[in-house]
Design a binder for these strands. Structure first.
Lengths: 210, 210
DNA sequence: GGCCAAAGTTCAGGTACCTTAACTTTTATG
DNA sequence: CATAAAAGTTAAGGTACCTGAACTTTGGCC
């Protein structure tokens, strides 16, 4: 199992979803969560997770959440890199809207070659984050996780760091309100129903406690 | 069966190969030819061709070459459009070489949405032909087939109209010799082993017999 | 015009992934 | 802390596609 191309598209999706679940501090994903995000049945998840465990890509115990092994994590991060580079490419070069780009990237990430991904990365100037503010892992798997907080935990003026792309409707509303990565908002002005999808950083900066 | 996205990737490939076989005047493809081009076994071809016949996409009689039905042809042409637009896009926008672009397009054509294809088409300015000179069908399925001949059938100066991309090695040699679509060559100077991959049109034009 | 090689088909069986239904384990709650 | 609801697993079976091996048909050639 040397590269992401040795996996089936379904296996690629499982790894990516398992990895993404914990990216922003949530606990490891359960079978139910996997079934929901992958639009499949719980029985199918058990089946597939066992297969991935057999390949040494996840640690699995019956009735327990799934976790990636180091090998699985490496491949998952490679898929996340693909996804986010493709999203960035579609928005910057093909005029896709921020809120509609996810599904297209979801399909293309399984078909793009490593060579294409590196060409896209170079053409875009090695971007650090995708259009939603999610950091793009390096080709070597390194990832700088922004140290962000929720609007509810912050006060005063904040820079929007990330908006979750899990729900396209929320994404579209944020766009219409100007809540996009890089924008400055007042923490208290982010609507409650959007707050859980938004990550911010106080404008003053955390490192200077004056 | 309304669109190409209702087909499996394998079915998409079968239709495209069956259609492409007759594009430049060759006879309908046999099971052996399909097996070779699709890297599969003869038994698998029989199996799959029956499935396509069951969907009304091909006409099939045992021990006879396969032909597309009108429904199958419509879908095949849609796949050819995808393939050629993606090839053109990769060469023009991502710096791919003429001779290496085929496999990448082969993978992406199954993953690209109709929307992406139309955006690419618009971004490229609705190109009439791909980098090898193969005509790109319109979104409505129309196709203008260039009225070209082989170098052996022509005399004197000719415009290169098309170079077959079936063999990447031949493609690379043609590129190195300057035998590319749009270039002018003397019919007699095309090396014999490349001639069968090259289509030309006399510079004077067929329509003015002066 | 019969025969043999090439081509094509059938058959048996395999993998990856999926489904529903019945069952077991976990957990939340009174 | 018993129990019911929720979560998870097992079992049986389906589809798409693939393989190798054995068989049948076709078509070129003497």
């Amino acid at each position: 199992m040397t590269g992401v191309d040795d996996l089936t598209p379904v296996a690629q999706d499982y790894l990516k979803v398992i990895w993404s679940a914990t990216e922003w501090g949530d606990p490891p994903i359960t079978s139910k969560g996997l079934a929901a995000r992958l639009h499949t049945s719980a029985a199918g998840v058990t089946d597939m997770v066992k297969r991935l465990a057999g390949q040494g890509l996840v640690d699995y115990e019956s009735y327990r959440p799934v976790r990636l092994t180091p090998a699985g994590e490496r491949l998952a991060v490679a898929m996340v890199r693909r996804h986010r580079l493709i999203e960035t490419f579609l928005v910057r070069m093909l005029g896709y809207d921020w809120a509609e780009v996810h599904d297209e990237a979801e399909a293309l990430e399984h078909a793009a070659s490593e060579q294409l991904i590196e060409r896209i990365d170079a053409l875009l100037g090695h971007p650090a984050a995708d259009p939603h503010g999610d950091p793009i892992p390096g080709a070597d798997g390194t990832l700088r996780r922004p140290d962000a907080m929720r609007p509810g935990e912050a006060q005063g003026p904040c820079t929007v760091v990330r908006v979750s792309d899990a729900d396209p409707a929320i994404l579209a509303r944020c766009r219409d309100l100007g809540i996009v990565p890089g924008a400055t908002v007042l923490a208290a002005e982010v609507p409650a129903e959007l707050a859980s999808a938004v990550w911010v950083e106080p404008v003053s900066g955390r490192a200077s406690p004056c």
